[in-house]
Design a protein around this nucleic acid. Structure first.
Lengths: 209, 209
DNA sequence: CTCGGCCCCTGACAAATGTCACGGCCGGAA
DNA sequence: TTCCGGCCGTGACATTTGTCAGGGGCCGAG
């Protein structure tokens, strides 16, 4: 059985050190081989085209393009390549978006190291791998209650400007910005703008640049 | 030369996956051996007492006790054990505080994986290891301009409560809280409370629980 | 078509936030 | 000693935020 061709892996993580460490960890397994490493989301597809990996391990937080978008792009470009999302934050929205984008598995960096190789094998075998705790939380949290505009305003408000700044940046009236913010605050159950941003961020509702 | 006793390492990082991956990476080196792994800052000293490592790799962001405090505690308990701080964020204040606490090296997780083993060896040999770019930035940023009370207020304000909440939690008058916040906003060059918190956090001025 | 939801805008009001000038306290310099 | 400067604390004041009640336009479902 160890005669079978090894599973070819692509690693994407913006932190070079953990990327290399993951490569070392996975290379210990006889049936796995790391054929490519990238540090940016927008390098995933080009590199995958060159190396034809069987499974891609993608981080969510990456410069250039986030891991969810990279998942979509990769699934479109190389449908036979499975995606396993490996991320720091177990945000409910991340899991949902990842699965919708076509990921086969979702693992947080809190999980024991020994389980990673198994997760890769399962994904390669066509199974789905999901942390059950996180899955439950995702179901409980539900999809984002925020409307498109509201998320956009909230996303822009992250930078920490005044209402006038936001209005200028978004080409809206100040009153409108206030309204959107107020709606977002209400929907998130927050009491502040800052609070609302935190809640939305924790739930993964502010993705997409 | 490979006959010499290997360097004994302790790893502390709250993310089990990267902890295990780092262990795998470092174990590839003949002259290094990982003798202990912990996931919380307050487990560092007890575990180090048991295993007597030569070098400890500590993350800054950890539950229980942050890596800086763990550095102090470890240096006090086992003066012969060197500390190499390995962290996600290259915040200027982190580096300063780490060195003041007695760390021998400071590495961000962006650095190439191959350099880590060398950093460990240098630290073990009694040398200091510091990212030169980050060192320059640290010098430029200088120490925190915030007064003790101001940092305390800002730290409490992170939770995202109203002024009254802060006043209650800190046993201060509302006006006083506002004043400290205003001063902090001025000193950080921010325009908002939220902005000030971000700036202070990015510079590592809000450490210590 | 009509209804409902979302989006955009307006204006006014209450509440929270940020600014300021002030006084007390303490430690070091003159 | 007195003076000065930094830090802390306080209250009054202007500004910014958040809320609410509107109104109009657009689009898709029923």
């Amino acid at each position: 059985m160890s005669r079978a061709a090894p599973i070819r892996l692509l690693l994407a993580d913006d932190q070079a050190l953990v990327r290399g460490a993951l490569a070392a960890l996975l290379s210990l397994e006889e049936d796995l081989t790391v054929v490519a490493e990238v540090g940016r989301g927008d390098e995933v597809v080009p590199e995958a085209r060159r190396c034809a990996p069987d499974v891609a391990l993608l981080d969510v937080e990456m410069p250039g393009m986030d891991g969810i978008a990279a998942t979509s792009a990769l699934r479109a470009a190389l449908p036979t390549c499975r995606v396993l999302v490996v991320t720091t934050f177990g945000r409910p929205g991340y899991l949902r978006r990842a699965m919708e984008a076509g990921a086969s598995g979702f693992v947080v960096k809190d999980t024991p190291a020994r389980q990673l190789a198994d997760a890769v094998r399962r994904v390669h075998a066509g199974l789905r791998v999901v942390d059950p705790t996180l899955a439950a939380e995702t179901l409980a949290t539900g999809v984002s209650p925020l409307t498109e505009r509201e998320t956009e305003v909230l996303r822009t408000a992250r930078g920490g400007g005044t209402v006038a700044d936001l209005a200028g940046a978004l080409h809206l009236s100040e009153g409108t910005v206030r309204n959107h913010l107020s709606a977002a605050i209400g929907k998130t159950g927050a009491r502040n703008r800052a609070d609302a941003i935190r809640v939305a961020e924790q739930n993964g509702w502010l993705l997409g640049e």
